[in-house]
Design a protein around this nucleic acid. Sequence first.
RNA 1: GGCGGGUUGCCCGAGCGGUCAAAGGGAGCAGACUGUAAAUCUGUCGCGCAAGCUACGCAGGUUCGAACCCUGCACCCGCCA
Length: 426
Amino acid sequence: MTVTEHILDELSWRGLIAQSTDLDALRRDLDAGPLTTYVGFDPTAPSLHAGNLVPLLMLTRLQRAGHRPIVLAGGATGMIGDPRDQGERSLNSLDVVAEWADRIRGQLERFVDFDDSPTGAVVVNNLEWTGGLSVLEFLRDVGKHFSLNVMLSRETVRRRLEADGMSFTEFSYLLLQSHDYLQLFRKYGCTLQMGGSDQWGNIIGGVELVRRIDSASVHALTAPLVTDAEGRKFGKSTGGGNVWLDPELTSPYAWYQYFVNVGDADVIRYLRLFTFLPREEIDALEKDTADRPHLRAAQKRLAAEFTTLVHGQHATDQVVAASGALFGRGELGDLDASTLDAAMAEVPTGAARLADKPTVVDLLVSSGLADSRGAARRAVNEGGAYVNNQRIADEEWSPAAGDLLHGRWLVVRRGKRSTAGVEIRP
RNA sequence: GGCGGGUUGCCCGAGCGGUCAAAGGGAGCAGACUGUAAAUCUGUCGCGCAAGCUACGCAGGUUCGAACCCUGCACCCGCCA
């Protein structure tokens, strides 16, 4: 794949540019040779989530375009907490932050390439230069360059002051992140910081700090915050929680399913944001979606590409096969044993013994499809419970030996798309 | 430190001695319609088959009876010449 298009033009058509400092100046610097750019990720959870991938993939894109990415794990900033509208964060303990920072660092490393070339990636943790900084040093060297007037007029700060107020700790977050940019500029000649548009203020803080202290002009570029067509924040799964990169938190199957279910109104935009597919291919998928929406070609492509990107080709093959088996038109009984076993390996499963005469309710609970027996019973009465694709309307229904697929599995489903397995032992 | 306000179910938020498992909204779940989509409409939404149990920051107390009253504690917020 030859890239003839300028990286800024690509970012632009993909919808990845929300705000920026002087784009012409940035273009000139990009053209002048490998530029060093960074994005930071704070350890606010044990894993990155899908939404984090927008800025992270921007680093990957920049690297592919011949530039050098720095991924930063916010071991220091994560101890302080970026102010948000919902109110003051509660601080996490130091070992929790350190552990999360490590895990996130491991995830970050998978999206950029490390080699000895000028475009080889660098991974840093801002605790490296912040941990040993003394308060006096910090207040004199960094704090002195920040105008309280400007800080107080920032959107988030204003809103917070009108609502619940804000601690000095969170208020100073801006200084830390700005300081990071200065450090990376000095250590690595980093002249571009990217991030989600909610980071604009923090990034600009760094741009100004570098200008004031080192009299250098560096760039800022943000990507729009990803929302769905309803304006809801992206990455909330239908189960309400986040869609996590960590396969322990969100299985590859669940990840794939999440993206297969993306609405028509969002899927093309997501393809641009989250995949490396070239423009022509995305245009073709857009046409497919318009002409033959029921085939969901764009959704399937998005899900497959994105699963491969995060979990690898092998995982994608497995979850595609499992999805095909479980959502296919055919009878579940027609699946051969190895296909069924493979599918069952991808979905949540439970176990039961035939001798215990488990009812549908038991099956729904043990497979994890229902949180309580009451919820399971409700599902059955609402007509939303299926065993082996057969709707079960009777709470007391119990499987017979002949219902077992290949002598050991029952495929339990709640609603249209929540599928799980129960392994039945004698 | 002083004075005042607050802490309710996943979230927001009402309740201010009984009829409160707790209004309303959002989210979630299910059904219908579909395309494993969206929108819409309907139902549902602490645990338990039930009796009942557990719940309104934590711990005690008053009362026949407390989310609602009292005491102490914790945390949050506002104001302080």
